[in-house]
Amino acid sequence: MSEETTTGLSHNKLAMWVFLGSECLLFGALISTYLLYRNKFYDGPAPGDIFDIPFTSVSSFVLLMSSLTMVLALSALQKGDIRNNRLWLLTTALLGAVFIGGQVYEFTTFIREGLGYTTSPFSSAFFTLTGFHGVHVSLGIVMIMSLLISSYRGKLTKKNTETVEIIGLYWHFVDVVWIIIFTVIYLVPNPTS
């Protein structure tokens, strides 16, 4: 269909890029809200007291590597290599799941240490920002699993590379958002109480 359009670009891919442009403003607002409140920890724990940098570094690394596996999945499908496509898709979904698992673990630890959702403006902003990112990753996992299912039903072939590519764009975008969050929220020196 792409050769029929005025720009020569496919509708779907263009729509995804427009959507990703839109998402920049969404995450920008959430990150700014967090930055505004990183000092407002009231009586609760401060970010510097509670963040576990080594742990988050590992889960950040996991998410970063899932971008590699996603691009390998696409590359395999472009070559018509269905088996490797499935393998890399599955790996990507698993790495994403590990990241989400890490986030669940992080959240429960924080709550145990006294940082609930309603503890302070900082806590609300932190959970909202990382929660929104987590929901994005989870939706990505659902989409990748849907790709896998259609692959096992024999419907994901070389003709469908664009579908994988577009879902991949979404996945990489979620990854670059985490690249920013990891630096700005975790690595920049945080206030302690």
Partner: peptide, 30 residues
């Protein structure tokens, strides 16, 4: 395309404040 996500975040903050007790606009906590 570029403005709707901003109001979406604002509305989420309001909704989370009202539904789940988030402190985005709680002046007592700063």
């Amino acid at each position: 395309v570029f403005a709707m996500p901003v109001i979406a975040v604002a509305l989420f903050l309001l909704m989370f404040s009202r539904q789940f007790g988030a402190n985005f606009f709680n002046t007592e906590m700063g």
